[in-house]
Structure formats: structure tokens, C-alpha cells
Measured scan of single mutants.
Amino acid sequence: MIINNLKLIREKKKISQSELAALLESSRQTINGIEKNKYNPSLQLALKIAYYLNTPLEDIFQWQ
């Protein structure tokens, strides 16, 4: 199971779900699903999230 700190990191950087979704060329619903652990992002999307949040991938997503 993958757990994530996306919501915590996103809020700390003062970025809304909609703003992050626009940067990622994704939907706000996708970001919401990832944050609620209802959806696991593809590797490509996970890497883009890490890039746009300027945060190491392993700080956002962790195996448990």
C-alpha cells in the first residue's frame, strides 16, 4: 500500500488542488483521489508532482 503526504506538503506550499492539477495537466478530482488514497498515481504523474512541489518523491509517497 502506498501512503502519501501530498495534502500536507501541498498545503504547506500554499498550493490549491486546482492549481496543482493545472500544473500537472490533470484534474482536481485526480489530486483529491490521490490525497485520499483512493487513487495511486502513475510513475509519470508521481514524478511530475514531486517536480512541481520541489520535493523528493520519497517524501511524498511511501510504501507501507
Rank of each mutant, 00 (worst) to 15 (best):
N37D: 08
K14E: 09
N37L: 06
N4I: 11
A46Y: 03
K14T: 05
I31V: 11
A50S: 10
I15N: 01
S26D: 08
S42D: 10
I3R: 09
Q44L: 09
L47A: 10
E19G: 10
N4M: 06
I2Y: 10
M1H: 06
L45K: 01
A50W: 05
L8P: 08
Y39W: 12
L45Q: 06
L6C: 10
K48V: 05
P41V: 10
N5F: 09
I49C: 02
Y52A: 14
A50R: 01
L43I: 12
I49A: 04
M1Y: 06
N40P: 13
N37T: 03
E35M: 03
I2C: 14
L6H: 03
Q17G: 03
K7T: 07
N32Y: 06
K36V: 10
S27Y: 04
K14H: 11
P56I: 07
T55A: 08
S18T: 13
I34T: 01
I3T: 11
T55F: 06
K38N: 11
L20H: 00
L43T: 07
L47Y: 09
Y51K: 09
L8A: 14
N32C: 10
E11V: 10
L20Y: 02
D59C: 13
S18K: 14
N37H: 09
I2H: 08
M1A: 06
I49S: 00
A21W: 03
N54A: 12
G33T: 07
E11P: 01
I3G: 07
N4W: 06
N40D: 09
L6R: 01
I34F: 04
I49L: 05
S16H: 04
E11N: 09
K38F: 12
Q29K: 14
K38P: 02
N40F: 14
A46W: 04
M1T: 07
S26K: 10
K7Y: 05
T55M: 08
E25M: 11
K48E: 07
A50H: 02
I9K: 01
F61W: 05
I9S: 01
G33C: 15
N40V: 15
I3H: 07
E35F: 04
I9P: 01
I60C: 03
P56F: 06
Y39T: 10
G33D: 15
K13S: 09
L20R: 00
E25K: 15
E58L: 09
S42W: 04
Y39Q: 11
Q64I: 08
N32W: 08
I15F: 08
G33R: 15
K12R: 13
Q29M: 11
I31L: 07
F61A: 00
P41E: 03
M1W: 05
W63N: 03
N54K: 10
P41K: 02
A46C: 08
I60S: 01
L24C: 15
I3L: 14
Q64K: 13
K7R: 13
I2A: 07
L53Y: 01
L47Q: 12
L47P: 00
R10S: 04
L6T: 02
Y52V: 15
K48H: 05
S42F: 04
G33Y: 13
I15G: 01
E35H: 02
S16R: 06
T55E: 11
W63C: 06
L47W: 07
E58R: 11
Y39A: 09
L6W: 00
I3Q: 07
A22I: 12
P56N: 08
A21G: 06
K36G: 09
L47D: 04
M1K: 07
